Simulated assay, not measured.
Amino acid sequence: MQYHTVLKKMRTELNDDVHYYLEVENDFLNLNQLLGRHIEIHFEGYQCLNCGMEKKIFRQGFCYECFYESAQVGDWIMKPELSTAHLGIGDRNLEYEEKVQLQPHIVYLALSSNVKVGVTRKTQVPTRWIDQGASKAIEILEVPNRYLAGITEVALKDHVADKTSWQKMLKNEIADLDLIEEREKLKKYIPKEAQPYFLANNGKIISIEYPVIKYPIKIKTLNLENTQVFSGKLMGIKGQYLLFEDGTVFNIRNSEGYKVQLTIK
């Protein structure tokens, strides 16, 4: 079977384990069903996910011009504390930014390798945790806008990491920590304006299982610009990574906007 597609991050669905779907030719490929099979990936070029032009991808699936012009990739995306829509101040497109920033956001703890603090829109729970490869997650706050979530994350990351060790996550090397206990430790560091939004009765830990036959021991990353044809046996999917038998891992999210031919053997 052969498919041609422009890579976009895999869609996910949480059941007993995570189900992964890759958009191909106006359809979706259920990747869970491909575990144990050989997949050949052939790099064919680029297509910007914003303007649709066949231009080299700069970051996040966008060409250079779109990355610095589109409201979808403003600085406040990666740094929520820079959000200003709650003040009526726009960065690139106030209408778009109000739509995204002025909605409920969750500040959470996730366990992907060690415990980390993060921010996501409420509508992105549990998708955000799955994309990070979290094995467990717990909510701390639910706030009405992105700014409040951002300043809380900034305050808490002085006391807990805000990044995942992706190598440990992919090897399934996960610290044995109690997220409820970690959550309680951080409560006193929440900024005053965000304290009323602490989810006092939310002690529910979400556990996430991934479709993995075998985790890699040593990791090799696949960069399609350097290795334009790759073939390997799919042994698992975690976060936004495909895990192959020889230890090669392929980050779909980091390869958005790449045009590929997939051959399933």
Score class of each variant (00 low, 15 high):
Gln2Cys: 09
Tyr3Cys: 05
His4Asp: 15
Thr5Phe: 08
Leu7Lys: 02
Met10Asn: 05
Met10Trp: 02
Arg11Phe: 12
Asn15Cys: 10
Asn15Tyr: 08
Asp16Met: 07
Tyr21Pro: 00
Leu22Gln: 09
Glu25Leu: 04
Asp27Gly: 12
Leu29Arg: 01
Leu31Asn: 05
Gln33Phe: 09
Leu34Met: 12
Leu34Pro: 07
Leu35Pro: 03
His38Trp: 14
Phe43Gln: 06
Phe43Arg: 07
Lys55Cys: 09
Lys56His: 11
Phe62Ser: 05
Cys63His: 08
Glu69Asp: 15
Glu69Tyr: 11
Ser70Cys: 14
Ser70Trp: 07
Gln72Leu: 15
Gln72Ser: 14
Gly74Asn: 09
Ala85Gln: 03
Gly88Ile: 05
Gly88Glu: 03
Arg92Ala: 07
Lys99Gly: 14
Tyr108Arg: 03
Tyr108Glu: 01
Ala110Gln: 11
Thr123Gly: 04
Val125Ser: 11
Thr127Arg: 14
Ile130Ala: 00
Gly133Asp: 08
Glu139Gly: 04
Ile140Phe: 04
Val143Ala: 02
Arg146His: 08
Thr152His: 05
Glu153Ser: 03
Val154Thr: 13
Leu156Phe: 06
His159Val: 02
Ala161Pro: 14
Lys163Asp: 13
Trp166Lys: 12
Leu170Thr: 05
Leu170Val: 10
Asn172Met: 02
Asn172Thr: 07
Ala175Arg: 08
Ala175Leu: 10
Leu177Gly: 00
Asp178Lys: 04
Asp178Val: 01
Glu181Met: 11
Glu184Arg: 12
Lys188Asn: 10
Tyr189Cys: 09
Lys192Ser: 14
Lys192Pro: 02
Pro196Gly: 07
Pro196Arg: 07
Ala200Leu: 13
Gly203Ser: 04
Lys204Thr: 12
Ile208Gly: 00
Tyr210Pro: 00
Val212Trp: 01
Ile213Thr: 11
Tyr215Asp: 09
Lys218Glu: 15
Ile219Thr: 08
Ile219Trp: 07
Lys220Leu: 12
Leu222Thr: 12
Asn226Ser: 14
Gln228Ile: 09
Phe230Lys: 13
Gly232Asn: 08
Lys233Tyr: 02
Gly236Ile: 06
Gln240His: 03
Tyr241Gln: 06
Leu242Met: 13
Leu243Gln: 04
Leu243Met: 14
Glu245Val: 10
Val249Gly: 01
Asn251Pro: 08
Lys259Met: 12
Val260Met: 01
Thr263Ala: 12
